[in-house]
Amino acid sequence: MSISTASNALNGTGRTNAETREKVRRIAEEIGFRPNALARGLLTKRSHAIGMLTNDTYGRLTLPMASGVSEVLVDHGVSLFLCATNNDPRLARLHLEALRDRQVDGIIFTATRIDMEPPPELTQLGIPVVYVFAQGPSDSVSFHPDDAQGARLAVEHLQGLGRSRILHITGERNYRAACIRAEAYQELAGPAAEVMFGDWSEEWGHAAIETVFSRSGAKPDAIFCGSDEIARGVIDALRDRNISIPGDVAVVGFDNWEVVSRQTRPPLTTIDMELKELGHRAGLAILALSKGETIEPGVERLPCTLVFRRSAGQGDQA
């Protein structure tokens, strides 16, 4: 048969009948034939590949997002190349040069904090860029978790359990997400409600409880933590003092990092940032932009969800 017939059969185009398509695909599989992606890219002016650049060395945030991106791309025959910068500007430039040499159709940039400045070279590549969990230019397409809405979910849940002395223990004050969550917490708990800023660590959670319970005055009956790691430190410190959880103090975390939240004793009620869904949305956006479609620029904030476990009162599930 002609080259064009074989090509149509492999690509599912033209008027090739079903029997011919099946024969061509069977023979191609038997001889191990694969279409030349580079040649196809020259014809279509697309590489059918997307780059994903991140400073997230351990993949805590990026891997769930990358999973969501991949689920979208694979249905369109597009590959994803994940590159970690380790917060090294030189490594970021090398990765961007490699992605440009590969002629990717677009790049998704992710970070470990929503206010992190991306590499300036991203705006000079001449290809679409989407930002997820990161700060993009004012004319860019960006996707963030709705930190304020997530914080309100946590506080409203604790208030719904009848808790009135809610303390907020969170991470570093210079993180925009920490400040957004703290402001939303105080909107519901009251402007005088205490916020304790510190490290994003179990050690800080433990130290914060030592500080709170060593001073005089009323003690909290609920604690909203800015991360699951902080929450685990909080819970360990409360248990060291023989304080019942959730009987005496209910605890809610933020992240739903299951390796932490499920293993906490008791299992941790927490806020899920829906990272995989963020990846889905970013994947759809970069596909559209790579095809020349127009998307309204701006930051879209996706809602968080509350995951019920046992650390925050009656009605929670394991």
Rank of each mutant, 00 (worst) to 15 (best):
L38Q: 13
A184H: 09
R262E: 14
S244Q: 11
A312Q: 15
D240Y: 11
N87L: 13
G150T: 06
Q149Y: 02
V72A: 04
G12P: 11
N55C: 14
S216C: 00
T294P: 07
A39T: 09
L275M: 14
G126A: 04
Y185K: 10
N8S: 07
L10V: 14
V249Q: 07
Q186M: 09
N8E: 14
L289V: 05
F133I: 03
R102W: 07
A231G: 02
L306E: 01
D147T: 10
I166S: 00
E71G: 03
T170D: 07
D221H: 02
Q159S: 00
A84V: 10
V78T: 15
S2A: 12
G150L: 03
F224L: 06
L73W: 08
P118R: 06
N87S: 13
A178F: 09
A288I: 03
R310W: 09
T85Q: 04
S164V: 12
W204Q: 10
V249G: 06
H76I: 05
G51I: 07
D272H: 11
H48R: 15
G190Y: 09
S7R: 03
R176M: 14
P220A: 00
N174M: 05
Y58L: 15
G59T: 03
P266L: 00
T57D: 13
T110I: 02
R181D: 04
E19Q: 10
R239V: 13
R113Q: 13
E30V: 03
